[in-house]
Nucleic acid binder design. Sequence first.
DNA 1: TTGTAGGCGTTATCAG
DNA 2: CTGATAACGCCTACAA
Lengths: 341, 341
Amino acid sequence: MHKPATIRDVAREAGVSVAVVSRVLNDGSGPVAVATRAKVVEAIERLGYQPRSAARELLQQRSTTTIGLLLADLANPFFARLADRVVWEARARGVHVLLLTTQEDPHLEAESIETLMGRSVGAVIATPTGGNLDKWRRLRELGVNVVLVDREIDELSCVDIVAIDNELSARTATSHLIGLGHERIALISGPLSTSTGRERVGGFRNAMTEAGLGVSDLLVRAVPFRGDSGSDAVAALLALPTPPTGLIVGNTAQVRNVLRRLQQSPVTVPDDLSLIVFDDNPWTELVSPALSVVRQPIDMLAVHSVELAVGRLKGTLTEPAKRIRVEAEFVQRSSSGLRTS
Amino acid sequence: MHKPATIRDVAREAGVSVAVVSRVLNDGSGPVAVATRAKVVEAIERLGYQPRSAARELLQQRSTTTIGLLLADLANPFFARLADRVVWEARARGVHVLLLTTQEDPHLEAESIETLMGRSVGAVIATPTGGNLDKWRRLRELGVNVVLVDREIDELSCVDIVAIDNELSARTATSHLIGLGHERIALISGPLSTSTGRERVGGFRNAMTEAGLGVSDLLVRAVPFRGDSGSDAVAALLALPTPPTGLIVGNTAQVRNVLRRLQQSPVTVPDDLSLIVFDDNPWTELVSPALSVVRQPIDMLAVHSVELAVGRLKGTLTEPAKRIRVEAEFVQRSSSGLRTS
DNA sequence: TTGTAGGCGTTATCAG
DNA sequence: CTGATAACGCCTACAA
């Protein structure tokens, strides 16, 4: 267990001063003679020297090489793939990722934000639970750049936002079912404490009223992301005197529970019930019938988030907070069809 | 954008010296009068003080509050859920996670290991690609504790290992098919450069030969994790003069490609082909027919990995390198059945 | 073009 | 019980 080499070791090995080594390390921070540089590079190689990032972070105010990624829940394929792309895009820019999860729990989120404050990360990409306004503000005041992805918090200013147009997506999905002749359409969304929940419910309602269809409150279920709430919601919908003939699941985390419950029930999809779910993933076309989905462009979400986060971090981006909307795509497959009953 | 408060600010605010504040922070590192402590705690509250972890890390040789997690690919649900559990278990122990991915590319893995060296993480949990022996060794020599999870590297000593018994799992799956009357059984595994690939092929071969069945090399395809190799492998198997009646997919990353190809082909599961895949996830029982699977106990993998990593980190675990095997479970569903042809 | 020295925020050591 | 002070490894003026 050797002690790692320090910049001083390198300097000695190369027969120069630490300042020169530092300049070689941070290419461009000062003039270095070609011959000297070569000596230093060689010494670095020979010693297997790695700069200690802790030392750098200490004197810069915040790290320019680490961002925090605060996601809801990696067991949800949507967030998992988002994480995958974010890590990838960040690395492509020489930035590392400190990963935290909230498990949709505002209390855990609060803890995480505090952690982030102490870790001197320069930026944070997050899917907020909806609470902890004060903590988010404090983080901002500390000079940490915040990028909200997928969800947003209206009351929070000075944060970048990257998301799909949830209102439009829900509206499109709803209109599609309406076009197929459905009139009793139900929506299972995420909780109204999240922007995605609110916007999707809004889009759904708008599409319905614009089509001259009423919306029964019984047919709109905003349920938690965690637990088996999706299953219960389906059960309740199917138990209605006149059950819906169309269902949109706008709560990505509950899609699997909904499907399981549906498979256990006597209703068949799409004959008895046309189904559209939010978010595509590699399995949605493997179940039968293949699911009609609203596909979120995860790559785009990741690219923009990282671009913003890193841009602010490195100071190349100084404009006021941006709000980037990327387009979701409706993909029709076999789970939605003409109304038959 | 306020400057964050430092320990000195707190000391001034509380009317004590920094040393006292430090002792209050690291509860137990020295005596503090009850009244003094109260004053300090209050000052900390008032200033919203957060210790800078960078300063701590600089002083201590390696961070005792950060571990690295180097995974293959978060788009694979297996690794995603593993990450979820690892982050969770780590947090429960007050430890944070720096996330890196290799995308199964040894070159990216090498970069990541170097990063890890500079980040002064105290421990690393990783699913190695199979290469970079020297780099792993160097990391170890630097005093970083390494825990390999899911896969292992034989040549690497002094690293902890947490994995299922892949030989046994593959053997069990194979025996199950044999018990159903199948004789021409194929295996699609991961590359032989990984321990999981080698062991699963081994278990498969052993089960076959023990049952007095020959193993044609044509029926064993070790294919890469990335790309569409699973699809190609299926196509090749189905094009054989006498195609297999049973198939085990031991390459988790390729399961979806295999299924897609199978759905596009005229063969029906399980009538024409009995299917068993490695690793369970919430979608395997939603496809039809529901898949017979080898279920890895992801929770256990995560718990043990973190336990080992954190134990070494905090110095509570000093025994020589451990190798922990957790039990995988075979779950029979509808995709495997009696041989009919 | 190169070297010297000070300080980033924290902990540990050792006197008071 | 408390306080001063020396590290930790690196960067950045500034001086040579």
